[in-house]
Simulated scan of single mutants.
Amino acid sequence: MIGRIRGILIEKQPPDVLIEAAGVGYEVQLPMTSFYQLPDVGEEAIIYTHFVVREDAQLLFGFADKSERALFRELIKVNGVGPKLALTILSGMSAAQFIQCVTHDDYTGLVKLPGVGKKTAERLVVEMRDRLKKLAEQGDGVTQLPTLTAEKDGATLLVTTDVKEDALSALVALGYKPVHAAKVINTVYSEGASSEDLIRDALRSMG
Protein backbone atom coordinates (compact mmCIF):
# COMPACT_ATOMS: atom_id res chain seq x y z
CA MET A 1 0.00 0.00 0.00
CA ILE A 2 1.13 3.55 -0.75
CA GLY A 3 0.96 5.35 2.59
CA ARG A 4 3.03 8.50 2.11
CA ILE A 5 4.40 10.48 -0.81
CA ARG A 6 7.15 13.07 -0.64
CA GLY A 7 7.82 14.86 -3.90
CA ILE A 8 7.41 17.93 -6.09
CA LEU A 9 3.98 19.31 -6.92
CA ILE A 10 3.62 19.33 -10.69
CA GLU A 11 -0.04 20.31 -11.01
CA LYS A 12 -2.80 21.59 -8.70
CA GLN A 13 -6.39 21.46 -9.92
CA PRO A 14 -8.66 21.13 -6.89
CA PRO A 15 -9.43 18.59 -5.64
CA ASP A 16 -6.71 16.82 -7.69
CA VAL A 17 -2.93 17.17 -7.62
CA LEU A 18 -0.06 15.57 -9.51
CA ILE A 19 3.01 14.97 -7.37
CA GLU A 20 6.28 13.56 -8.71
CA ALA A 21 8.39 11.31 -6.49
CA ALA A 22 11.43 9.39 -7.73
CA GLY A 23 10.47 10.04 -11.32
CA VAL A 24 6.89 8.78 -10.94
CA GLY A 25 3.91 11.13 -11.12
CA TYR A 26 1.08 10.26 -8.72
CA GLU A 27 -2.44 11.58 -9.26
CA VAL A 28 -3.99 12.22 -5.86
CA GLN A 29 -7.39 13.55 -4.76
CA LEU A 30 -7.47 15.62 -1.57
CA PRO A 31 -10.24 17.09 0.58
CA MET A 32 -10.17 20.87 0.41
CA THR A 33 -9.09 21.11 4.06
CA SER A 34 -5.84 19.41 3.05
CA PHE A 35 -5.61 21.09 -0.36
CA TYR A 36 -5.43 24.52 1.30
CA GLN A 37 -2.26 23.47 3.10
CA LEU A 38 -0.31 22.50 -0.02
CA PRO A 39 2.67 24.59 -1.10
CA ASP A 40 2.88 26.20 -4.55
CA VAL A 41 3.48 24.23 -7.73
CA GLY A 42 7.17 23.41 -8.08
CA GLU A 43 7.72 23.06 -4.34
CA GLU A 44 8.13 19.92 -2.26
CA ALA A 45 5.11 18.48 -0.49
CA ILE A 46 4.43 15.56 1.84
CA ILE A 47 1.06 13.84 1.50
CA TYR A 48 -0.27 10.95 3.58
CA THR A 49 -2.26 8.67 1.30
CA HIS A 50 -4.93 6.00 1.21
CA PHE A 51 -4.89 3.63 -1.77
CA VAL A 52 -8.19 2.31 -3.14
CA VAL A 53 -8.32 -0.52 -5.70
CA ARG A 54 -11.53 -1.05 -7.67
CA GLU A 55 -12.37 -3.21 -10.66
CA ASP A 56 -12.30 -0.19 -12.95
CA ALA A 57 -9.70 2.06 -11.28
CA GLN A 58 -6.88 2.47 -8.78
CA LEU A 59 -7.27 5.67 -6.77
CA LEU A 60 -5.06 7.61 -4.39
CA PHE A 61 -6.56 9.92 -1.77
CA GLY A 62 -4.25 12.32 0.03
CA PHE A 63 -4.26 14.16 3.35
CA ALA A 64 -2.16 16.79 5.08
CA ASP A 65 -1.84 14.74 8.26
CA LYS A 66 -2.41 11.24 9.65
CA SER A 67 -5.42 12.21 11.78
CA GLU A 68 -7.45 13.33 8.76
CA ARG A 69 -6.49 10.15 6.91
CA ALA A 70 -7.52 8.09 9.93
CA LEU A 71 -10.92 9.78 9.93
CA PHE A 72 -11.30 9.16 6.19
CA ARG A 73 -10.57 5.46 6.73
CA GLU A 74 -13.26 5.25 9.39
CA LEU A 75 -15.76 7.18 7.28
CA ILE A 76 -15.58 4.78 4.34
CA LYS A 77 -16.46 1.92 6.70
CA VAL A 78 -19.86 3.51 7.35
CA ASN A 79 -22.72 1.93 5.41
CA GLY A 80 -23.47 4.03 2.35
CA VAL A 81 -20.34 6.20 2.57
CA GLY A 82 -17.77 5.69 -0.17
CA PRO A 83 -14.48 7.52 -0.80
CA LYS A 84 -16.12 10.32 -2.82
CA LEU A 85 -18.64 11.16 -0.11
CA ALA A 86 -15.96 10.90 2.58
CA LEU A 87 -13.85 13.36 0.58
CA THR A 88 -16.82 15.72 0.34
CA ILE A 89 -17.43 15.54 4.09
CA LEU A 90 -13.81 16.40 4.86
CA SER A 91 -13.92 19.24 2.32
CA GLY A 92 -16.88 20.83 4.07
CA MET A 93 -15.55 20.62 7.61
CA SER A 94 -12.34 19.78 9.41
CA ALA A 95 -11.80 16.47 11.17
CA ALA A 96 -12.20 18.23 14.52
CA GLN A 97 -15.50 19.78 13.45
CA PHE A 98 -16.83 16.44 12.23
CA ILE A 99 -15.94 14.90 15.58
CA GLN A 100 -17.85 17.70 17.29
CA CYS A 101 -20.93 17.10 15.12
CA VAL A 102 -20.95 13.40 15.97
CA THR A 103 -20.26 13.95 19.66
CA HIS A 104 -23.12 16.45 20.00
CA ASP A 105 -25.57 14.64 17.67
CA ASP A 106 -25.49 17.65 15.34
CA TYR A 107 -27.44 16.24 12.41
CA THR A 108 -28.12 19.73 11.05
CA GLY A 109 -24.43 20.42 10.51
CA LEU A 110 -23.99 17.14 8.65
CA VAL A 111 -26.99 17.40 6.32
CA LYS A 112 -25.67 20.72 5.00
CA LEU A 113 -23.02 18.71 3.16
CA PRO A 114 -23.88 17.52 -0.38
CA GLY A 115 -24.82 13.86 -0.49
CA VAL A 116 -25.55 13.69 3.24
CA GLY A 117 -29.26 13.33 3.88
CA LYS A 118 -31.00 12.78 7.19
CA LYS A 119 -30.59 9.00 7.14
CA THR A 120 -26.91 9.21 6.22
CA ALA A 121 -26.34 11.76 8.98
CA GLU A 122 -28.00 9.45 11.48
CA ARG A 123 -25.81 6.53 10.37
CA LEU A 124 -22.70 8.69 10.63
CA VAL A 125 -23.51 9.70 14.19
CA VAL A 126 -24.42 6.18 15.33
CA GLU A 127 -21.60 4.29 13.60
CA MET A 128 -18.85 6.85 14.17
CA ARG A 129 -19.45 7.75 17.82
CA ASP A 130 -17.34 4.98 19.37
CA ARG A 131 -14.68 5.12 16.66
CA LEU A 132 -14.23 8.85 17.12
CA LYS A 133 -13.46 8.60 20.82
CA LYS A 134 -10.00 7.41 19.88
CA LEU A 135 -9.59 9.74 16.89
CA ALA A 136 -10.57 12.76 18.98
CA GLU A 137 -7.50 12.15 21.13
CA GLN A 138 -5.28 12.16 18.03
CA GLY A 139 -6.56 15.36 16.40
CA ASP A 140 -3.30 17.35 16.47
CA GLY A 141 -2.48 19.28 13.33
CA VAL A 142 -5.99 19.21 11.85
CA THR A 143 -6.80 22.36 9.91
CA GLN A 144 -9.68 24.36 11.36
CA LEU A 145 -12.20 25.59 8.80
CA PRO A 146 -15.66 27.07 9.40
CA THR A 147 -18.58 24.68 8.95
CA LEU A 148 -20.90 25.33 6.06
CA THR A 149 -23.56 27.98 6.49
CA ALA A 150 -26.62 29.05 4.54
CA GLU A 151 -26.42 29.89 0.84
CA LYS A 152 -26.17 33.54 -0.21
CA ASP A 153 -28.66 34.89 -2.75
CA GLY A 154 -28.53 37.28 -5.66
CA ALA A 155 -25.74 35.83 -7.81
CA THR A 156 -25.87 35.47 -11.58
CA LEU A 157 -25.26 32.03 -13.07
CA LEU A 158 -22.64 33.14 -15.62
CA VAL A 159 -19.16 31.72 -15.03
CA THR A 160 -16.57 33.36 -17.27
CA THR A 161 -13.05 33.51 -15.81
CA ASP A 162 -10.55 30.66 -15.54
CA VAL A 163 -10.49 31.13 -11.77
CA LYS A 164 -14.25 30.72 -11.61
CA GLU A 165 -14.17 27.72 -13.92
CA ASP A 166 -11.51 26.04 -11.77
CA ALA A 167 -13.58 26.68 -8.66
CA LEU A 168 -16.75 25.41 -10.33
CA SER A 169 -15.03 22.22 -11.49
CA ALA A 170 -13.76 21.56 -7.96
CA LEU A 171 -17.17 22.10 -6.34
CA VAL A 172 -18.92 19.88 -8.89
CA ALA A 173 -16.30 17.18 -8.27
CA LEU A 174 -17.13 17.44 -4.56
CA GLY A 175 -20.81 16.78 -5.25
CA TYR A 176 -22.39 20.21 -5.55
CA LYS A 177 -24.86 20.88 -8.36
CA PRO A 178 -23.38 23.08 -11.14
CA VAL A 179 -26.11 25.75 -11.08
CA HIS A 180 -26.00 26.07 -7.30
CA ALA A 181 -22.19 26.14 -7.24
CA ALA A 182 -21.99 28.75 -10.03
CA LYS A 183 -24.47 30.97 -8.22
CA VAL A 184 -22.47 30.95 -5.00
CA ILE A 185 -19.15 31.40 -6.82
CA ASN A 186 -20.42 34.60 -8.42
CA THR A 187 -21.68 35.81 -5.05
CA VAL A 188 -18.36 35.42 -3.23
CA TYR A 189 -16.04 36.28 -6.14
CA SER A 190 -13.74 39.28 -5.71
CA GLU A 191 -11.20 40.66 -8.18
CA GLY A 192 -7.78 39.10 -7.80
CA ALA A 193 -8.98 36.06 -5.86
CA SER A 194 -7.29 32.74 -6.62
CA SER A 195 -9.30 29.60 -7.35
CA GLU A 196 -8.35 28.25 -3.90
CA ASP A 197 -9.63 31.44 -2.23
CA LEU A 198 -12.82 31.21 -4.24
CA ILE A 199 -13.40 27.55 -3.37
CA ARG A 200 -12.79 28.25 0.32
CA ASP A 201 -15.21 31.20 0.36
CA ALA A 202 -17.83 29.24 -1.60
CA LEU A 203 -17.64 26.29 0.80
CA ARG A 204 -18.09 28.66 3.71
CA SER A 205 -21.27 30.10 2.24
CA MET A 206 -22.87 27.01 0.74
CA GLY A 207 -25.43 24.97 2.55
Rank of each mutant, 00 (worst) to 15 (best):
T161Y: 04
T161E: 07
T161N: 04
D162E: 14
D162M: 07
D162W: 01
D162G: 02
V163M: 05
V163T: 13
V163G: 00
V163K: 09
K164P: 00
K164L: 04
K164I: 02
K164H: 04
K164W: 03
K164Q: 15
E165H: 11
D166T: 14
D166R: 15
D166L: 08
A167M: 03
A167P: 01
A167E: 02
A167H: 06
L168M: 02
L168T: 03
L168G: 03
L168Q: 02
S169T: 15
S169N: 15
S169M: 13
S169E: 14
A170F: 02
A170G: 02
A170D: 02
A170Y: 06
A170C: 13
L171P: 06
L171A: 09
L171H: 10
L171W: 11
V172Q: 01
V172T: 13
A173H: 06
A173D: 01
A173V: 00
L174S: 11
L174D: 10
L174P: 06
L174C: 10
G175N: 08
G175E: 12
G175Q: 04
Y176V: 09
Y176P: 12
Y176G: 04
Y176N: 02
Y176F: 15
Y176E: 12
Y176C: 10
K177S: 05
K177N: 13
K177T: 07
K177F: 04
P178A: 07
P178Q: 11
P178D: 08
P178Y: 03
V179G: 00
V179I: 12
V179W: 01
V179Y: 05
V179T: 13
H180G: 00
H180Q: 12
A182F: 02
A182N: 00
K183I: 03
V184H: 01
V184F: 00
I185R: 02
I185Q: 03
I185N: 01
N186Q: 05
N186A: 03
N186P: 05
N186I: 04
T187W: 07
T187G: 08
T187D: 07
V188H: 01
V188T: 04
V188P: 00
V188N: 01
Y189S: 00
Y189F: 15
Y189Q: 02
S190M: 08
E191G: 02
E191Q: 13
E191M: 13
G192W: 10
G192H: 10
A193V: 10
A193K: 14
A193T: 10
S194Q: 12
S194W: 09
S194G: 12
S194I: 14
S195F: 06
S195G: 05
S195T: 11
S195A: 15
E196S: 10
D197I: 05
D197E: 15
L198R: 10
L198W: 11
L198A: 12
L198S: 08
L198C: 14
I199R: 11
I199Y: 07
I199C: 14
I199Q: 11
I199G: 05
R200Q: 14
R200M: 13
R200T: 13
